[in-house]
Computed example of a mutant assay.
Amino acid sequence: MSAASELPGIAPAPALPSGVIHPRWLRLTHWLNALAVLIMVTSGWRIYNASPLYDFRFPDAITLGGWLAGALNWHFAAMWLLVGNGLLYLLLNLASGRLFRRFFPLSPRGVLHDGLAALRGRLPHGDLRHYNQVQKAAYLFVMLDLLVLVLSGLVLWKSVQFATLRELLGGYETARHVHFVSMALLVAFVAVHLAMVALVPRTLLAMLRGR
């Protein structure tokens, strides 16, 4: 019996064509999310430069928007793409049962075991349909991190309208720090993700063509 089938209320995995690893809807929402994140991060760096929190600025060459108003326009446009596409991704994962099949069960001991195996280069990648415990934890983390980014971003965008949310985050200035740290964690995830793709190129091919 598979681990997913032991979880109550989890539907059996829908049949995919032979050899298919990622369904088309997953690949489409994945790449749209990647595009939205790229635009939001690079335009966000330009916005940050206009009123930096810390004693540094991002080089203009890696920012988007040209100036503050242009960066804000890019940021808000990508925000709607990220929220809309992110919700679609989450709903399809929930409706298909994929969220629970792919990311659970998950345990601290399992994450530690697979993390140590990865550091020793002994983590198998033969079957891309199954995520190891480190992958499960990382993907769930980035989902939560994106949620924090969106919520803190709402406070920065409409502080008066989202007064309750602003107070829950500790005030406007604290929300700025939360937003920045969440962005930094997202960029760190992307960097590690790209490094893993470079080590296992089959994962990129599977996300491009589904096999």
Rank of each mutant, 00 (worst) to 15 (best):
A163Q: 14
N73R: 12
F58S: 14
P108V: 12
L156H: 09
S51Q: 14
L185W: 02
Q161P: 00
G110W: 11
V37H: 07
G66H: 07
R202Q: 15
L91R: 01
G210V: 07
G66K: 11
A138D: 12
L119C: 02
I21N: 01
L82Y: 10
V37Q: 05
W67Y: 14
R27L: 07
R101G: 09
Y54N: 13
P12W: 05
L53I: 15
T174M: 04
D60V: 15
I39Q: 05
L156D: 01
R211A: 05
R46D: 10
L64T: 05
G86E: 11
W74P: 01
A11K: 09
T164V: 15
H113V: 10
L156Y: 10
N49I: 08
R202C: 10
W25I: 04
R98N: 14
F56R: 10
P52V: 11
L26R: 07
P59N: 14
L169W: 07
L185G: 06
A3M: 10
L38I: 12
A117N: 08
A95Q: 06
F103G: 05
L53Y: 12
M1L: 12
L185Y: 02
L123D: 08
I47F: 04
F104R: 10
V197H: 07
S5D: 13
R120V: 00
P108Y: 14
F58P: 14
E6V: 05
T42A: 07
W25V: 04
L94C: 02
Q135C: 04
M40F: 02
M143D: 06
A118C: 06
L123C: 00
R120E: 04
R122W: 01
K136I: 06
G84F: 12
M40K: 04
H22Q: 08
L94P: 02
L146Y: 06
A118T: 05
A36F: 01
V187R: 07
K158R: 15
V41H: 07
A34R: 08
Y139L: 08
R129L: 11
Q135V: 02
A117F: 01
L144A: 15
S18K: 09
L185E: 00
S18T: 07
F100G: 03
F56D: 03
L92I: 08
L119A: 14
N85Y: 01
G70T: 00
R202N: 11
W31N: 07
V142P: 01
P14N: 03
T42M: 10
R122Q: 15
L147M: 11
H179N: 09
Q133E: 14
Q135I: 00
L151M: 10
W31H: 13
